[in-house]
């Protein structure tokens, strides 16, 4: 679902992070529901934890629909990404560990090793359709231990 509240939170996080370390690029798209690059799918993504932690493995949920809103089941999803400003990837190799029904998938093994701008890149294949999308996430939680 396209939630104004979620964007508020994301944008507020961006504001705080921007005055922290490396400056973020202008117009970073922080929407968590978007169409894939070629418009094949509509994808939503959200963490399955209250606060996105630093340096702890946790899971996200991915929801995939057709542009018309029909849930896509049985998709194959590849995951990649990292911190473009630091030229490094994830400290872990996250992957889909379960299909949750209704076009929802569990992405597990996500770990952010530091605060800042992270890219979450999904390669999605379902039947004949194949497309990709890059979500941007700003991690702001202070590192612990």
């Amino acid at each position: 679902m396209f939630s104004a509240k979620r964007i508020l939170i994301a944008a507020a996080s961006l504001g705080l992070a921007a005055c922290a370390m490396t400056a973020l690029p202008d117009r970073l798209d922080l929407r968590t529901t978007r169409a894939t690059a070629d418009g094949q799918f509509q994808v939503s993504i959200h963490p399955l934890v209250q606060v996105v932690p630093v340096n702890r493995i946790h899971a996200w949920e991915i929801e995939i629909k057709t542009p018309a809103g029909t849930p896509i089941t049985g998709a194959t999803i590849g995951f990649d990404g990292g911190m473009p400003q630091h030229m490094h990837g994830y400290p872990t190799q996250p992957r889909i560990t379960a299909e949750l029904g209704n076009g929802r998938y569990r992405l597990d093994g996500v770990k952010f090793s530091m605060t800042g701008w992270w890219e979450m890149k999904l390669q999605i294949r379902a039947g004949e359709r194949s497309d990709q999308i890059t979500f941007n996430t700003i991690v702001t939680e202070p590192a612990k231990g």
Binding site: M21, T22, V54, N55, S113, M114, T115, P142, K144, G145
Partner: peptide, 16 residues
Amino acid sequence: QCISCHAGPLFTDQHF
């Protein structure tokens, strides 16, 4: 920008 990697109370992100 030392704090990018040397973060938190131990001053490390524990990564490589």
